[in-house]
Design a protein around this nucleic acid. Structure first.
Lengths: 227, 227
DNA sequence: ACCTGAACACCGTTCAAGT
DNA sequence: ACCTGAACACCGTTCAAGT
C-alpha cells in the first residue's frame, strides 16, 4: 500500500473520465436535476457544473433555455408515445390521455412549458397522431377533430398544471386553505362558493380527471363543427 | 429670465414630486411595464427603477414576485368581475367566459401565471361566484358544478395561453410553420396529422373559442357526476 | 467543429442602518 | 412603519481565443 496516495493522481484513469459532452448527456443531467431539485434549478449554469464544464459549452447542443425545455419534455413523453393500447376507441383515448396526463402530473413544471411553447418533438407528434386516429375511429369529422385535439390536449395539460403533484403542493395547499377561509368569511358576498364550498376541493385526483375527460369527450361528440 | 437655471433647482416644487410609494403605484408601474415591454421585464428591479427607488423598497407592499403577479392579475380582472350580463344562463355564461378569456388572451403571460398559482384575488372570486350561480340556474348539480368550474376556467385559461396574441406570436408562428413542415415530410409516419393538417390551424380564434366553450358546456350538461 | 474563460448585463431577496 | 444602500447569490448569453 502506497504511503503516498497523492502520487497516484498523475494516473489519468484513476477515476471515471469526465463524460464527453453530448446532447444525451446534457438532457440526462437536466432530467436528474429536474427530479432532484425541480425545474427552477435546471439552469444552463447548473447543468454545466454537473458536467464539469462552463455554461458556454452547452450552446453547441442546445439553442437556448426554451430549446432545452422542449428537449426535456419530448424525452419524458417517450413511454407515452410508444405505449400499446387496447379496447374501444374511447377506452384507448382515455388510456392514452390519462397516461399523458400522468407524465405532466408528475412534472407540472414541464407541463407549464407545454402550454407556453407549442411542442414539436417526435413523441408529442406521435401522441397527437394517435389521438387523431382514435377520434377518426369514433366517427368524429376531420374538421371537428382538428379543434377537438386542441381542446383535449390543452385541457389535460391545464389540469396537470393545476393539480400537479410536486414541491409546490405545499404552496397550493396554503392557497387552498386561504381560499377556503375567504369563502367562509365572505359567505354573504360569495354565497355559491360558500354553498359548493367543500365540493370544490373534493374528490380524488383520478376521479376528477376521469370525469373531466368524460365530459370533454361527451362534449366533443355532442358538438360537431359547423364552420 | 434667469441666466442661472440651475439656481432654481433648490425649489422643490419645480417638477412633479417623486410619487409616494404605494401598493397602487407599484401595480400601476408594473402594468405599464407589462403593456410596454412584456412580463419578462416586470421585475422588482425594473419597477423600482421606474419609481425612482431601490428594489428593497417594494418589499413593504409586495411579499415576493409571485405575489406581485397575483396582484397584477386581479387588477386586470376588475372589468370582468363587474360587467353586467344579459340573456339566458347559458348566454350569460358564454359572455362572461369570453370576456374573461379576452383578458387572458390579451395577456397570455399573465394567463400562464393563473395556471401556476391558484388565483385568490377578490375579482377572481367574484367571477367564480358568477359561474357557479349560472351553472346552478342551468340546473347543474352542486357536485357537478364544483368539478365543472375547474374544467371551464382551466380550459379557458389554457386556450388563452396557447393562442394568446402577444409578442411571442412570432415564435408561435415559427413553431406552427415547423409543425406544418414536419407533418408534410413525415406524412407516412403521421398520416392523420397530414390529413387533418390544414384544419389544425384553421378557423378564426373567436370561432374556435366559441366552439370549445360550446363543447365544454355540452359536455358538462351530458356528464352528471356520479361520485 | 467543439470547447472554454471571461465578461456583460441582468435577476430576487435579505439585512443592517437610517428616518 | 417605511425606506434605503449595499451585499449575496445567483441567472442567460455572447464572444474571442484556444484545441
Amino acid at each position: 500500500v502506497s504511503a503516498h496516495p497523492e502520487s497516484r493522481s498523475p494516473n489519468r484513469r484513476e477515476r471515471p473520465a469526465k463524460p464527453a459532452l453530448t446532447r444525451e448527456g446534457i438532457i440526462d443531467a437536466a432530467l436528474s436535476i429536474l427530479e432532484d431539485e425541480g425545474l427552477e434549478k435546471v439552469t444552463m449554469r447548473r447543468i454545466a457544473t454537473a458536467l464539469d464544464t462552463g455554461p458556454a459549452s452547452l450552446y453547441v447542443y442546445v439553442r437556448n433555455t426554451a430549446d432545452l425545455h422542449a428537449q426535456i419534455l419530448d424525452e419524458l413523453l417517450d413511454p407515452v408515445a410508444t405505449m400499446s393500447l387496447e379496447g374501444t376507441w374511447r377506452e384507448q383515448l382515455s388510456e392514452l390521455l390519462t397516461r399523458y396526463a400522468r407524465v405532466l402530473f408528475d412534472h407540472p413544471e414541464i407541463a407549464r412549458i407545454t402550454m407556453t411553447t407549442q411542442p414539436v418533438g417526435q413523441n408529442y407528434f406521435a401522441i397527437a397522431e394517435t389521438v387523431l386516429r382514435l377520434l377518426n375511429e369514433g366517427n368524429v369529422s376531420d374538421a371537428t377533430s382538428a379543434w377537438a385535439i386542441d381542446l383535449l390536449l390543452a385541457s389535460v395539460t391545464a389540469s396537470a398544471v393545476a393539480h400537479g403533484a410536486d414541491r409546490e403542493q405545499a404552496d397550493a395547499r396554503n392557497a387552498a386553505l386561504l381560499a377556503a377561509r375567504l369563502s367562509e368569511i365572505d359567505a354573504e358576498k360569495y354565497p355559491r362558493i360558500a354553498t359548493v364550498g367543500s365540493e370544490l376541493l373534493s374528490g380524488e385526483g383520478p376521479d376528477r380527471f376521469a370525469w373531466a375527460l368524460d365530459a370533454l369527450i361527451n362534449g366533443i361528440l355532442a358538438t360537431p363543427r359547423r364552420i
